[in-house]
Amino acid sequence: MLNLRVIPCLDVKDGRVVKGVQFLSLRDAGDPVEQASAYDAAGADELMFLDITASHEGRGAILDVIARTADVCFMPLSVGGGIRAVEDARRLLLAGADKISVNTAAVENPDLISACADAFGSQAVVCAIDAKHGAAVSGQGGRNDGWRVFTYGGRKDTGLDVIDYARLAVEKGAGEILLTSMDRDGAKTGYDIALLRAITSAVSVPVIASGGAGSAAHMVEAATQGGADAVLAASIFHFGEVSIGEVKQAMVAAGLPARLTGAEMRRDAAEAFS
């Protein structure tokens, strides 16, 4: 049986891991290579690496960070941030990424998704969507309790309906949707379950829940109530508030399939004898 995936996310700016609240006020959370290695040892199921470096000069340097991250991590590595063309994606894959995640450029040109899927296969193409509560001004217009797609790191409101856009992305060949609730990002009050449900019931590809996780219970809820195939979090993992193992244990306790690795089993044994 397929296990739910627990995915730590490294938001990387100028070669350092940072994490903000509602996409702002970034604070330093360490070296990405060290963190990737620690998450690999902790039994993370996958790693998401988002390059939020603003400058073009930083882009070349990030390839080296990705290569060094890939070298220490024997789990799938997805990389997103600033991908505007197939060639950008190819460079990241050659540096060691297993999947690439497209966001702004895909909203502006959905054919970028098909071009990447044709070149690398759908399994390598993640469509990242930043969603914020509010009525859409396009698509299935008139839906007044929906969500709109935002681009440019949450700065630009496209007015697009999230459900319409998610369906389009899958039609174009996206193999997975990374769905971030901007309303919940960094708030630690739980994922936006209604948003998750809306998307998981609208598309046939796996959906990664993102934005709002504050506890292992929130992650269980994303799967049981939201239908998520994977759960992603950044700050609660980076700052040690919740461990990968605790999330997996909570999933198993809730009767959900999760991959327990040696790391948790050893810790359990240590706790049993302490």
């Binding site: 049986m1 397929l2 296990n3 739910l4 995936r5 199921d45 759908s122 399994q123 193999g175 997975e176 046939s204 590809v205 796996p206 195939d229 994977a230 991959r259």
Partner: peptide
């Protein structure tokens, strides 16, 4: 879901 993606 398809792709079959994850740990099995």
């Amino acid at each position: 879901k398809v792709p079959h993606m994850g740990w099995n």
